[in-house]
Every structure is written in C-alpha cells, then in structure tokens.
Design a protein around this nucleic acid. Structure first.
Length: 615
DNA sequence: CACGACGGGG
C-alpha cells in the first residue's frame, strides 16, 4: 500500500523540484500534456500547486496554467490561495476565492480555504476585508476550526485590534497550544507584554514555539533585558533553543549594545550547530555592526553562505553607522554584481553612507538612480537623507531647496536634518525656520528645541536660550532623559543623569574627580558654552561632569581590565563637551572608547574620533 | 465508492 503513496507523489514533484528555470518548467509542462498525465484533475491540481510552491517569487506561470483549466478542484484553488497569501501580492488570493464563490455549487470553500484567506487578509492589512472574511467564516460554520481560529487571532493582531483577538480567543472552549501562542504573540504585538507574560505563565504546558513567541514578544517591544532574562530562564528550564530563538536574543543584544552577550550568543549558535539561516546570519552581522565591532561584522558577512537584501542592507547600514561611507558604496556595487536587487531600505543606508563622508555627488546620483534604475519612488526618508547629505556638506541652500521641492509634504525628519545642518554651520535664521516648522508638525518634539537652543548658545545668545526653555516649559515639552548603557562581564549597567543609586557610586565619584584632575593637567578648560538641554535645572551646575556617558565611562574605567575597549550606548546624541572630553580621556587614559550615539558610532582613540567632527 | 493530495503559532 505504501507504493500507492509514492506513485501519486512521484512523477510530478520530483520533476518539478529540479525545474529551476521557466524554460525547463515549460518543457515539463508540455511533456505532461503530451503523455496525458494532466488529464487527471487531481494531478493537474498538484502540478499547479507545486510550481506555485516552488516559485513563490514568480507565481504567474501557475496562475496561467490554472486559467487554462476549466474545472479546478478545491485542492488546487486552496493551494493557490495559500501561496498567494504568502506572496508579495496577497490580494490575488481573492481572485481564487472568487472562483470558488462563483462556481455555483461545484466547489465550496472548506476550513483550509478560510485559514489561508484569513492570512491573506492579515497580509494586506485590510480591516474591512478581514471583517468580511470573518463573517464568511461564521456563515460557513468554520469558526470552530482551530486553524482558522489561530489565523483570526493572528489577523486581528496584525490590524492592531487586540480586543478582537481576545474576543476570538475567549470563544474557544479549550484553546490548544497554538491558539494560546497566537494570543500571547498578539498581546506582545499590540504592546501589552505584561499581559502576554501573564498568559504565558498561565499556560498549562509550553512548547518551544510558545517560549520563542514570548521571547520575540519582548525583543520586538524593545524589552531587551526581559528578553535576555527569558533566554537565561529557557536555558535553566532546558528548553530547546533553535535558530529562531537566537534571532530574538541577538536582536535584544543589538538594542542594548551588549557585545559580550552577543558574542556569547554567537558561541552558543556555533556550539549547538544551529542552522545558520539568512535571517540568523543577518541578525548576527547586525549585532556586531551595531555593537561597534564592524570588523567582526564583515568577517561574519563574508563567512555566511547566503546573503539576501537584508544581509547586504544591514552591512551597508552598519558601515555607514560606523563612519565608513566609502566602504558602504563599495559593498553596494558588490551587491549589485551579486545580482541582489536593492530595496528602499538599502537606499536609506547607502545615502547615509554618502552623507557621513560628504560624498554629495555620488549620493545625488544614487538618489536619482532609485527611480530611474530600480523603479523605487523615493519616500520621505530618502528625501530626509538627501537634505542631510547636502546639509552636512554645508550646502544649506541646496538642502532647503530639496525640502521646498519634494513632491510630498516635508516631515519633521527632513526639517530636523536641516536644523542639524544649521547647528553645524551656525545658521541662525534657517535654524529658526526649521525649528518652527518642526514644532508646527510635532508640537512636542523636544529635539527641535534642544538643537535650536544649541544654536543660540553657540553664539552666546543667552536671552534666546532661556526663551526657548520657557516655551518648552509652557508647552509642557519634556526632554528625553539621557541614559547611557555599558556592559561589564556580561551584565548591562544603565546610567541616568544624576542617578546615584549605583552600588559603586562612591568609586565612580572618585574616578570622575580623577578624570577632572587629569583633564585639567592636560590643559582642558570646561566647555560651558553649550547649555545642556537634556538635563534638569537642579543639576545644571555639575552637569558638565555628570552627563550620563561620562558616568558610564568612569564606571568602565574602574571596572574593565586595562586595554579592554569601553563601549557605551547612549539614547541621545553625544553633546559637544562630552565628545571633546571623551577624545581627551581616550588619550590620557590610553583607552579605546566606542560610543553608539542615537544615530551613529564614535570610535575614540589616541585623542581622536572616527567621526572627525561629523555628527 | 470515495479516499486523499493544502493547513495553524515563534
């Protein structure tokens, strides 16, 4: 009897698996038509489904074959709904659903149909369609099918409708692990990780996928520490970790800038011989790049077997972030040579690369090529990059020109890029214009006020500085508290401005004094020019030596072995003074210091910084 | 004759 099975599967699938080109596919098709194999509607269905499944990026041929078929079976139509629901054109799933609906009573949808259809709705993010399909699910009586139920939860989570997710979930008398996992994932996706964790803890039994859902939930919400805690718990509980788990773990390390733990995760992956999927490889490269170890990122990049757009984009962006703009251009041409097509994100990274090294001409050319060569319409972010490109290079008029001529309404980011350039080149009038525009768009954008006050302070215009401050107070604009993170022995330490709760605060204080003393000996005069806007009034006096990154550096100096680079991640941009001071510390203490800023890296060594004042 | 060849969560 087992031969029956293999006979049914054998002829088509094995043939199609070897058909990599369209030409070969057509040959096989012709051959099957001649020998009559495709007269059997079931085999024809299998044929269509298999080519669709094997060529997810090019589904046109399978639809073509189907269109030539008078009476497709439900199996065939379901298969096509399924592959289209996962494709880049999920709305086409409905084309096949229509064929079912309009077939009279020849074929009627089943639970499979609705499972795939619900996922197509989730993909196209259309609530109206989703609700309509949900209605059909109920009408056809498939709302009891666990596959459809988990699909509905997934769909409503994609829509951000957590209430509907709960509604669906509560109507399931005895939800299985899959539905429970779906609801946990939905809670996390919609921003309620606490509830997700509660439901996770209440699960009668958790399989590895449920653990991964919780882990990914934390990682995606930016609850990186919780993600790492859960990762450790998983090891204690003996949960089997796989490549999917490690993507979340690496992402958490990336967020925190926790290079040691990231390295540890890398070792874990190798020791357990986890499958190095493209996603995992990219996560690993991204981790090294965003934790400031670009050399290692490149090493992994060349070592991985498979590289897709994400992989290339990650490395191009990493190089840009680390100030190696010329290198990111190089990688971009290699990527094209490799036959990988850039997407809109690739161009954001590439343009940033041009920007950090001042390659205005090249940047402009690449910007133009987006549309002409790749048919990608530049989006807001790309115009923002272009403004930044001109602005950083000192071409302020050109930058303003970009804003005035962009085809859509300029967003706060575009004006922000201009404002930053105005700060760099001390252009007060244009800076005022830019900040006014930003505040019009986003009344509570604290960054605009901070930059504007920096411009005023830079020209000793204290009246206007205090004026900005008053406006902020009146409007209730809160600045983001500065926070720096440093990892020591695999433990992540956070420092906020004026936070004295650290257990080793006394030692830190002593070290800060020591730094101060040695800086003065080296001829450093405190830079009181910038009135530091990211701190509270009360702390203003000793603010200059208490900025969170300085405290973190002091902590690094007392707790890390000599010769070990100090790596800091900051949630804001480094201020001028901290930048100066850090350069000097790197020389005086003969220490490499790597700071990950809000938008780029600063590698301090021998009194110099890799950004060369460009930030 | 009618079975079976598509499903779910990270």
């Amino acid at each position: 009897m087992s031969s029956l099975r293999s006979v049914a599967k054998h002829p088509i699938i094995s043939l199609l698996d070897s058909a990599t080109s369209l030409k070969r596919l057509k040959q096989i098709h012709a051959q099957l038509l001649i020998n009559g194999t495709l007269n059997d509607p079931h085999l024809l269905g299998q044929f269509v489904a298999t080519i669709a499944f094997n060529n997810p990026t090019n589904l046109s041929y399978s639809s073509l074959v189907l269109d030539q078929c008078d009476n497709p079976t439900l199996f065939t139509l379901n298969s096509l709904i399924r592959v289209y629901s996962k494709s880049s054109t999920p709305h086409k799933s409905f084309h096949f659903y229509k064929r079912i609906a309009e077939s009279g009573n020849k074929v009627s949808p089943d639970n499979y149909t609705f499972n795939f259809l619900v996922r197509a709705c989730a993909q196209i993010l259309s609530r109206e369609t989703g609700l309509l399909v949900h209605g059909s699910v109920i009408k056809h009586g498939f709302d009891n099918d666990p596959h459809v139920q988990s699909g509905l939860i997934f769909m409503y989570a994609e829509f951000g409708c957590l209430g509907y997710c709960h509604k669906v979930f509560e109507e399931i008398p005895e939800p299985d692990v899959v539905c429970q996992t779906a609801i946990i994932s939905a809670c996390a996706k919609c921003g309620d990780v606490v509830l997700a964790r509660k439901m996770f803890d209440e699960m009668p039994e958790r399989d590895p996928i449920a653990w991964n859902a919780m882990l990914a939930g934390y990682a995606q919400c930016g609850e990186s520490r919780e993600a790492l805690n859960l990762f450790h718990l998983m090891q204690i509980e003996g949960v089997k970790l796989n490549e999917v788990s490690m993507v979340s773990v690496l992402s958490a390390c990336t967020h925190l800038g926790a290079l040691d733990q990231g390295r540890w995760a890398h070792v874990y992956i190798e020791r357990n011989r986890l499958k190095m999927t493209v996603t995992l490889g990219t996560a690993l490269i991204d981790m090294y790049a965003k934790c400031g170890n670009m050399n290692k990122a490149m090493e992994v990049f060349w070592a991985v077997k498979e590289r897709n757009v994400y992989t290339w984009t990650s490395v191009i962006g990493g190089l840009a972030m680390n100030g190696a703009g010329d290198k990111s251009l190089e990688l971009f041409s290699l990527m094209k040579k490799d036959g990988v097509c850039p997407n809109e994100v690739t161009f954001v990274s590439l343009l940033r690369g041009c920007s950090v090294v001042g390659l205005v001409e090249e940047g402009r050319e690449h910007f133009d090529s987006m549309k002409t060569e790749y048919g990608i319409e530049p989006q807001l972010e790309h115009y923002g990059c272009l403004v930044d490109l001109y602005g950083r290079a000192g071409c302020l008029d050109e930058a303003l020109n970009v804003i005035n001529n962009m085809p859509m309404k300029p967003h706060a980011g575009a004006w922000g890029a201009l404002l930053n350039a105005c700060r760099m080149y001390k252009n007060m009038e244009m800076g005022e214009l830019a900040s006014r525009k930003i505040v019009e768009l986003e009344a509570k954008n604290h960054g605009a006020y901070v930059l504007l006050s920096n411009i005023y302070a830079d020209s000793y215009n204290w009246d206007r500085v205090s004026n900005v401050r008053q406006i902020m107070k009146a409007k209730g604009v809160k600045k983001l508290p500065g926070c720096s993170v440093i990892e020591v022995d695999g433990e992540v330490h956070e420092f906020f401005v004026g936070d004295k709760s650290q257990p080793r605060y006394d030692e830190i204080e002593i070290m800060l004094g020591e730094i101060s003393r040695r800086l003065k000996l080296a001829g450093y005069v405190a830079n009181t020019k910038p009135v530091l806007f990211d701190i509270e009034e009360e702390e203003k006096e000793d603010s200059l030596c208490k900025h969170s990154e300085k405290v973190a550096i002091a902590f690094g100096l007392i707790s890390l072995k000599e010769g070990v680079p100090i790596r800091i991640v900051k949630n804001l941009r480094v201020c001028w003074d901290c930048h100066d001071v850090t350069m000097m510390i790197s020389k005086i203490f003969n220490r490499e210091i790597v700071v990950r800023d809000r938008n780029r890296f600063h590698h301090f060594k021998d009194g110099k910084c890799s950004c060369k004042g460009y930030w």
